[in-house]
Simulated assay, not measured.
Amino acid sequence: MLAATGPAPCAIGDPEQWWPIRGESRDEYADAVAGCRMCPARVACLAYAVAAGERRGIWGGLLPRERLQLARPDAA
């Protein structure tokens, strides 16, 4: 798999895409999540968000509830 290069999509796109309102579904943010897939900073972004306990926004292609599951000690 080739790594993407260039600026992160969240740095050049509509910032509202990366800040879902509580209760909105993943489908409503599919464009932002798709932009994260090829982002050169995806792994670092997700690692930061999990380590920092970010409770809002899409980070590394995951919604807050998805990151919370990832950060759980019993997550596989």
Rank of each mutant, 00 (worst) to 15 (best):
M1Y: 15
M1N: 12
L2V: 15
L2F: 14
A3H: 13
A3L: 13
T5K: 12
T5S: 15
T5D: 11
G6Y: 03
P7H: 12
A8M: 11
A8F: 15
A8T: 08
A8W: 07
P9L: 00
A11F: 09
I12F: 09
I12H: 04
I12V: 09
G13C: 06
G13W: 07
G13F: 02
D14C: 01
P15K: 01
P15F: 00
E16C: 02
Q17K: 03
Q17V: 01
W18P: 00
W18I: 00
W18H: 00
W19Q: 09
W19I: 05
W19K: 01
W19T: 10
W19A: 06
P20D: 01
I21P: 00
R22N: 08
R22H: 07
G23N: 04
E24W: 03
E24R: 07
S25V: 08
S25C: 01
R26L: 02
R26S: 03
D27W: 08
E28W: 09
E28R: 11
E28A: 12
E28Y: 03
E28L: 11
Y29M: 07
Y29S: 09
A30E: 15
D31M: 12
D31G: 06
D31V: 05
A32H: 01
A32I: 02
A32M: 08
V33T: 05
V33C: 08
A34V: 06
A34T: 13
A34W: 05
G35Q: 11
G35S: 06
C36D: 03
R37W: 15
R37L: 12
M38E: 14
M38D: 15
C39Y: 11
C39L: 12
A41N: 15
A41G: 14
R42T: 10
R42G: 07
V43F: 14
A44F: 10
A44Y: 14
A44R: 14
C45V: 11
C45F: 06
L46R: 10
L46I: 02
A47R: 11
A47C: 05
A49W: 07
V50E: 06
V50Q: 07
A51K: 14
A51Y: 05
A51I: 08
G53S: 07
E54K: 05
E54T: 03
R55D: 10
R55E: 12
R55L: 11
R55V: 12
R56P: 02
R56A: 11
G57W: 02
G57F: 03
G57A: 04
G57L: 02
G57Y: 01
W59C: 04
W59D: 01
G60T: 00
G60S: 04
G60P: 08
G61R: 04
G61N: 10
L62F: 12
L62Q: 08
L62G: 02
L62E: 03
L63P: 02
L63T: 07
L63R: 06
P64E: 00
P64V: 06
P64D: 00
R65W: 13
R65N: 15
E66L: 03
R67I: 09
R67N: 02
R67A: 08
L68W: 14
L68G: 13
Q69G: 08
Q69H: 09
L70E: 14
A71M: 08
R72V: 02
R72K: 15
R72G: 13
P73H: 15
P73K: 15
P73N: 14
D74T: 09
D74K: 04
D74Q: 10
A75E: 01
A75S: 05
